[in-house]
Design a protein around this nucleic acid. Structure first.
Lengths: 250, 250
DNA sequence: GCTTGACCCTGACGCGACGTCAGGCTGTTC
DNA sequence: GAACAGCCTGACGTCGCGTCAGGGTCAAGC
């Protein structure tokens, strides 16, 4: 099998294979008399490993030492790759969650702290700078302005959306006052309306994601505060209704 | 806020911020009289966006055009980032699944085709090369050799593991023959034993992942064949027992 | 047997996104 | 006022290839 075919199979360029040959990361196990590189099955195995580790962010030199380590059998590589991939999965979910939180915060007109936003970019160094930043900008209206600036619907759109939101929230509050159980059908219907409203106006929000948001309403004090200001106990109530609705759909 | 603080907060180096300044991707909104870069809250917002898009693999120049596009409000960025992150999540899960499949294949002494292995590296170009490769190596013993070579437990270990595996499989076959329902307790216990055996000898296999493997036993013909050779109907039976066991644990 | 066109080779230079000094100013602290 | 951490601007280095340039190879068709 020669370069072009291997390249097509593995989804890399010929140049990449040349490169790997030159740096000794993956030398084809043979050459034709004309000097054409000939790749054997074992070479493909190795290429596969190389691409996996590369995808996982290892520099090529390190990939070489990993793969040339005689103490590491293939099973060890698989285990390591498995672990690394799961780490990555976790990190990506965290980032997804962060973006969803940000979207939800925008929808509710809450603004997150910069620490929170950067939190997801690994290796988080705590306190220290947090305190400092709070001090510098915490109470000022810089945040308020920045928030204004970033809110870029037309004013009419925004007012319409705001009215919709207020409406559902008010009906939630009424239901709570009238003692309608959070897991009753009317409450779940309200939750469903809330979810569809989000989906229409902000971002696509499936029941599962909605459930995550619901949890956040009781776990993050700023979101809690938002609802508690409307009516005491409302955060808990809305969250419960959302959970019930999500369960109903699952 | 000056470079060092921003760098620490965002988890990047000062040099990176210098770079972003020079290429015009992120210019601090002010300078002190001494020439020190001064970053404002809005700059942090932008930095956050930059890092997200960078993480998602965009070249910096493209990030700049994305962020400077006056038609794209912040919500649009969030939606796009959300979508991209979800894509990535999906891709990573696919890779995790591929690695798990490979591990399981090894455990059973089956070897996957190179096409399958590379499949997960996106933008898959079909047929064409698949056929070609089959033709070249399909029936030869090159694969068998490569498989031998890569199997690097000590022989004793391997024999012990093989005996364990055979034992559970035989007991599954007996249960099937005796008409023990796949969702009965003894069958589920066997499934659990199977799971724990995998975890001990090969890789950490939680109930959920085990369920995925079970499905593969009936969906992938080579895995099916492996069990059918032991006893007809065994693939289906084992798969069902695994599902039942997974459900019992969840 | 000869041309054509796809494929292969080896340099060699270029590039993106920084890392890493070097040489020098700033600003706080004791 | 001296020390030391932190900031500045060049400028060169590195990694993982992309992209020509200049030239050999090979299967197909005439």
């Amino acid at each position: 099998m020669n370069v072009g075919q291997v390249a097509a199979l593995a989804g890399v360029t010929v140049r990449t294979l040349h490169h790997y040959d030159r740096i000794g990361l993956l030398r084809p196990s043979g050459r034709t008399s004309a000097g054409y590189r000939q790749y054997a099955p074992a070479d493909l195995d190795r290429l596969h490993q190389v691409l996996l580790y590369r995808e996982l962010g290892f520099p090529l030199e390190e990939v070489a030492t990993l793969l040339d380590d005689p103490a590491a059998d293939p099973a060890a590589h698989l285990r390591r790759q498995h672990q690394l991939l799961r780490d990555r999965l976790e990190r990506t979910s965290a980032m997804v969650a962060a973006v969803e939180k940000e979207m939800e915060a925008r929808a509710m007109g809450i603004s997150l702290t910069p620490e929170e936003r950067f939190e997801v970019f690994g290796d988080w160094l705590p306190e220290e700078y947090a305190a400092e930043a709070e001090e510098k900008w915490g109470g000022t209206d810089a945040w308020a302005q920045s928030q204004q600036r970033t809110r870029a619907m037309t004013k009419d759109d925004w007012l319409r959306v705001k009215a919709e939101t207020d409406d559902v929230e008010a009906r939630f509050a009424t239901a709570l006052r009238d003692g309608v159980p959070a897991d009753s059908e009317p409450a779940m219907d309200l939750a469903e309306e809330h979810r569809q409203q989000l989906s229409r106006n902000f971002y696509d929000c499936g029941p599962e994601m909605h459930g995550g948001l619901g949890r956040m309403y009781v776990e993050d004090e700023r979101f809690t505060a938002y609802y508690e200001r409307i009516a005491p106990g409302l955060a808990q109530y809305v969250s419960a209704a959302i959970q019930a609705n999500a369960a109903r759909q699952g």
